[in-house]
Amino acid sequence: MPEVKRQLSMVLDLNKCIGCQTCTIACKRLWTRDEGMDYMWWNTVNTMPGRGTPRDWEQLGGGFQEGQPRPGKLPRRRDFGDAWNFNYDEVFYGGKGDRVHLKVVGEEPDWGPNWDEDQGAGEYPNAYYFYLPRICNHCTNPACVEACPRTAIVKREEDGIVLIDEDRCRGYRFCMEACPYKKIYFNHAQKVAQKCIFCFPRVEQGVAPACARMCPGRVRFVGYRDDENGPIHKLVDKWKVALPLHPDFGTDPNVFYVPPLAPPRFDENGDIDESKPRIPNEYLVSLFGPPVLGVLETLKSEMAKTREGGKSEVLDILIAYQWKSMFGGFDRDPGSLTWNKT
């Protein structure tokens, strides 16, 4: 397991995510516009329950089980959702805009990022869903680092960010098989694996990752795990309201989630039924492990406390009254930086 001095982490409050994909686009515009990156979305937001991006990624294996690597499968390009081409010319410039609809040119796609948007699960009036934004988890026990035969993937000692060295990478894709979150992409043009870099060039200048800074919902907290005055330590370690996704995958992620509360159910008479949760507990446990139930209780009791007029430190943090307080000191305005392109 790679040793690190400090660990940068992210906490995402799923109760605030509105699925707007601003994070996704912020990342796309910044990092994945080069050749071969057209189908890449280092940041994705999917409706849960759902099959996800890439399709059925939770069933593709990888990670560790009882300390041993668990075999994983390579997702296919169409499982990520290919970069589709549209008939822009025909619709916008061909003089047929009043007759021809915008559509995909070529093979009709059957999957894509967030393909099953807002489908969720459950039956009316008790249907439910929530949004799950995902990036590379910059794991403490990264399966990708272990899998690479060329030591082309490193976990940085100074901040725990996991990076692929594209000069060493030979495009073998053992990392893609090994990553249980299926957050590594293969660049077919450049023949290397690529993934979320936690915006390290920004972070090194004191600027939060683009997905976090651009989030209109104030969903994402950033900072060092050991910064006791920062939001990560308070949410993960002090209040214990943020949990890693699929701890059963054995990689010890450094991205954490505040699990979603849901409105109460309706009974057959249309009356509010508080006895059972709208989102089944088993489902949340399958994602975040058994501690998720305790987290929901903490959140509910803190909410009850404030309703009685009390103060709640954890809710104040989650509400994020002060936007900059979310970034653990990484709150420099990127507009104030001068970039030197080398």
Binding site: Q68, P69, R70, P71, P149, F174, E177, A178
Partner: peptide, 10 residues
């Protein structure tokens, strides 16, 4: 002889 456990297992 494969250099990583993930490759050996798979």
């Amino acid at each position: 002889l494969q250099p990583t456990a993930a490759i050996r297992v798979s």
